[in-house]
Design a protein around this nucleic acid. Structure first.
Lengths: 218, 218, 218, 218
DNA sequence: AATGAATGAGGATTCATTCAT
DNA sequence: CATGAATGAATCCTCATTCAT
């Protein structure tokens, strides 16, 4: 379990400190997702990371700090990326959204990332700080980007007249649910391929609607 | 708070025992939603229900039993109702879905109900039993109903050709996300009116698509 | 160790709750005095009190609360008594002080009491609350009483002219030191008899001075 | 703070190792007095001393060793001095005591010294070694010296007939209490001046007694 | 000589659950 | 039925101490 040491040197501990925080976060994410925050024991996180319980506290001041660290590490970059991509995108609104979701879902197939939103949804209620971080680092970036794409699309006549705020739930909700179902009920698959397949269907329905004959009232 | 009942139906001072379990579940749901399952103390549930901690164990053998009791009590009827409504419905596929979602979202505005799915998503990971109950009592009823509506709609030429399983995420996902956002970030409103407004927009987008000019390739 | 149960009934736990807090405080005092506050484990206190660790927390919200409880329980009454005795006393200043010290030292031979001042001196530095309690409940009562006796004695010509505040250290200091030495180095004896003997010598020196021929300058 | 020394005596940047132990002891005393032995963290001592935690262990084998080092360093010399002064003193008993106390209290106003007795009183209970050191290095020197002064004084008719052992508490007790009160409750002042003022009053009361008219029975 | 990194051992506190009444 | 009293088991976090560099 602790193995993997050459027979020559036996470095009981000591390893480059730089890698440690990341390894700890990886372990934490894995267990938080499986068992929830409260039910996860710091000792188990440590065990998976291959260090001692006390060493965890060398890098993170508390158990909640792990939660917050996870959000900061994994999601923020994705959110920023999606935001920038949408802002700078020059094509149609449809293509902008299509590209953003593809970008995001590529990242989401990284197991270190796709669980975070679900984790946040589970635990944010009791940790206002966590909710705030997620809001500041993710929602406050992505939301306005989507909004402006929709608003522009409506202005140019590309999109129907819809409620901008509420429609964002139609764009993001299916994706979240897909990941969550995979996570929780182990329904569907969250592999890169599975996500891709899902995404194409989602985009098709999202842009064209379920109905074959659509109203032209919008 | 405990006493004070009219002399007529007043059994001295204490509610009929039959009502107790319900009151306990109400209290449990309230706290589970706010704090999560692990972080909720049985003692606090008891306090809200106006009884003693030990009395809770008179009605429920354990803390998890409360969780399971919640699902059984609140969601199953709704799911059954939606299932039946869809099965017996005779109109178009669009109207079937429309009706089912309206039915559900009416119930969802009952605070004793709308939190359950979110609660399950939060805690099912660690309680396979809970996941199983939810799956058996809700998912296994609603999913096939939706599936058959979609399949029939495609057969009759009403709906485009879509992946049936995946499309269900487009139907349900936005609704779940809407409720969750309201619950966790206190974004949007989960009042009956708010839900209604959201639902109309959701159905509009779902059936007609975002694009004004749709492809007729389906 | 837990023994002492008649062969008839085996009351695993359960005892009159009224006695518990006192028993816990007794145990706490014993260990706090021997090992200091920090070095005393709550578990050991519980063991001596014949209950479980968790039960301690049924009666006292925290370890510090035990410390504070000790002061409130044991010393306050003694201080009040001394205060009242001095205030109501009608004889000479010398007799007032004599009486007060005798009264106090009678109580001090109660092992539940004589250790408290030493304990407070040891721990008050780090627990401002404890210092405050002791100050409010003991010092603020006893100090003024002594002061007024001295002031009156000086006014009536019974006592020499001295610095009132500082002289109180001459009255109390030797007593404290005596008890502390007994406690810490196990020098001298803190039995009722030992205290009595010490007290008579202390009072003799205090009132008459070491010098046989005294100055009459005061 | 670390660097910045003239080129002349500058051993590059780091103080001579000889001074280190003293600096560590200074830091330790400061914290032990404020927080007690147990509650003081070695890391904080190191921080004040301007070195790393591990370096402390280069000079002292353990945390207790710091405690013992403090007594050895600071008090022993004072005790020896007082002892010698009293032994060699040629004047009256009163003047001998007066001189000894003045000598001691001069030293006591050195913050590196006056706290030690209080510290010992706080912690000796749990560290028999500490109690022994203090006993051997301080008490066993000072006590006999005082004793012989008193005995001689009684023999020459200068002092009243008193219990020698117990009377020493009258000599030292007020001084200890004065310092302790200053330390713990921040009553009185422990400045050199404050101590001086206190001492004069103490000696006045000690030798002449509180009573203006003294018995001549001694 | 000096230290950053690591840990073992321990302690306060919490809480679901049980039992005697 | 109802509950106050009690506890075992768990878990976070701290800290003196050690070791490799």
């Amino acid at each position: 379990m602790t193995a993997q040491q050459s027979k020559f040197e036996a470095p009981k501990f000591r390893r480059r400190a730089d890698e440690r925080p990341d390894e700890v976060l990886d372990a934490a994410l894995q267990l938080f997702l499986r068992d929830g925050f409260e039910a996860t024991r710091v000792e188990d996180i440590a065990k998976i990371a291959g260090i001692s319980k006390a060493t965890v506290y060398l890098y993170f001041p508390s158990k909640v700090a792990l939660l917050e660290g996870l959000v900061k590490r994994s999601i923020s970059p994705v959110a920023l990326m999606a935001e920038n991509a949408m802002i700078q995108f020059e094509g149609s609104g449809q293509d902008a959204i299509r590209m953003a979701l593809r970008l995001v879902s590529e990242k989401l197939s990284d197991p270190n990332i796709f669980g975070i939103p679900v984790l946040v949804m589970r635990e944010a209620g009791r940790f206002p700080d966590l909710a705030k971080i997620y809001h500041d680092e993710v929602i406050s970036h992505v939301l306005p980007a989507f909004k402006s794409v929709i608003v522009n699309g409506m202005a140019s006549g590309e999109f129907r007249e819809v409620d901008v705020e509420l429609t964002i739930r139609n764009i993001v909700g299916p994706l979240i649910l897909h990941v969550a179902l995979g996570n929780i009920f182990e329904m569907g698959d969250n592999s890169a391929d599975g996500l891709q397949t899902f995404l194409e269907n989602h985009l098709y329905v999202l842009f064209n609607g379920l109905n074959k004959e659509t109203r032209n009232d919008g």
